Structure formats: structure tokens, C-alpha cells
Simulated assay, not measured.
Amino acid sequence: MLVLIDPKDARAIRNKDNILGMYDLMINQGKPEEAAARFMAPAYVQHNPLIPDGADSLGIFFGQVINGRTRARVDVHKIIAVGDYVWSHVNFRNLFNDDPQDTGIAGVDIFKMDSDGKAIEHWDALQVVGTPESAANWYAPNVPAANPNGMF
């Protein structure tokens, strides 16, 4: 994992650690409601149109998504923290299936954190991770990747 942070910025270090803890507890450990209560402010503002505002809503959403998904996990590839903001580049795997061949969904998450280190606002951009044979399997099936660089 690539971590970019000023080692003298205690607030940024705490915020980065909290976001990493949130991902792990919410998805890898399968405890989304607990993670949302611990790492999100109650009045959490969500900019992803699929998820309502509020920490409780986030916990409920991910609870429904990962319910029964034994392979659900998130891999954090890059994380940047500066002051009240944390940016992460992640691969969400098996959120919508339990297929062992799932390549996942690449995400860039941006979190704004409060003075207590809880997320108060969130933006994201998501993209299906393809393969060399199928660059984007659900909107351009069987279109080969145009480069060998990979998503991460």
C-alpha cells in the first residue's frame, strides 16, 4: 500500500488510521453497522446517490450489500491524508457476488473528517475492474484492455 502523509501531522495520521479501520471493520470483518457508528459522524453527508445521508444509513446499506457474501473484502492500494481530508484508492471485491473470479470495483473515496476523527462527508468515483481480455465487462464486454497498466 502506498501511504502519503506528513508524519508530523497527528490529525492526518489519526484520520488515515480511522479510514483504514473503517474499511477493515465494515467490509473485511463484516460489521458495517458497528463500523459506521464508530467511524462516521451521525450527520454524515453522502454524495453517492445510492446511499442516504447518515451514519446509520451507511451501515444499513453495507449490511445489505455484504449479507451472505463470504468473500466480500476491500483492498486499499493508496491512501493520502492531509488535514481534514483522506483520499483512498481501493478495490472492492465481491460486494455484489460471491464469485471467486470477481475482479472487483475500483474506487476513489474522498472523506472529510471532523475534529474527533469521524467522517462527516464522502464522495466517490467507482469503476469496474476489467481483465486484459475484457476491459469493462458490463458496459464494453470483450473489448480488450487498451494498455497493460492495470487499475492499481
Rank of each mutant, 00 (worst) to 15 (best):
residue 66 I to Y: 05
residue 70 T to Y: 11
residue 71 R to T: 12
residue 72 A to Y: 03
residue 76 V to I: 14
residue 76 V to T: 15
residue 80 I to F: 12
residue 80 I to L: 14
residue 81 A to D: 05
residue 81 A to V: 08
residue 82 V to L: 12
residue 83 G to N: 12
residue 83 G to A: 13
residue 84 D to T: 06
residue 84 D to N: 15
residue 85 Y to R: 15
residue 86 V to F: 05
residue 86 V to H: 11
residue 87 W to S: 13
residue 90 V to M: 09
residue 93 R to K: 14
residue 95 L to D: 00
residue 96 F to T: 09
residue 97 N to P: 05
residue 97 N to D: 15
residue 99 D to N: 15
residue 100 P to F: 04
residue 101 Q to M: 11
residue 103 T to I: 02
residue 103 T to K: 14
residue 104 G to V: 03
residue 107 G to R: 10
residue 109 D to T: 07
residue 110 I to N: 02
residue 111 F to D: 10
residue 112 K to I: 02
residue 112 K to T: 05
residue 115 S to F: 07
residue 116 D to G: 09
residue 116 D to R: 12
residue 116 D to S: 15
residue 118 K to E: 02
residue 118 K to R: 13
residue 120 I to P: 07
residue 121 E to A: 12
residue 122 H to S: 05
residue 122 H to T: 10
residue 124 D to H: 01
residue 124 D to Y: 05
residue 127 Q to G: 06
residue 128 V to M: 13
residue 129 V to M: 03
residue 129 V to N: 09
residue 129 V to K: 10
residue 131 T to W: 03
residue 132 P to G: 01
residue 133 E to I: 00
residue 133 E to M: 03
residue 134 S to L: 00
residue 135 A to M: 06
residue 135 A to E: 01
residue 135 A to V: 00
residue 136 A to F: 04
residue 136 A to Y: 10
residue 138 W to I: 03
residue 139 Y to I: 07
residue 139 Y to R: 13
residue 143 V to K: 13
residue 144 P to W: 00
residue 146 A to N: 02
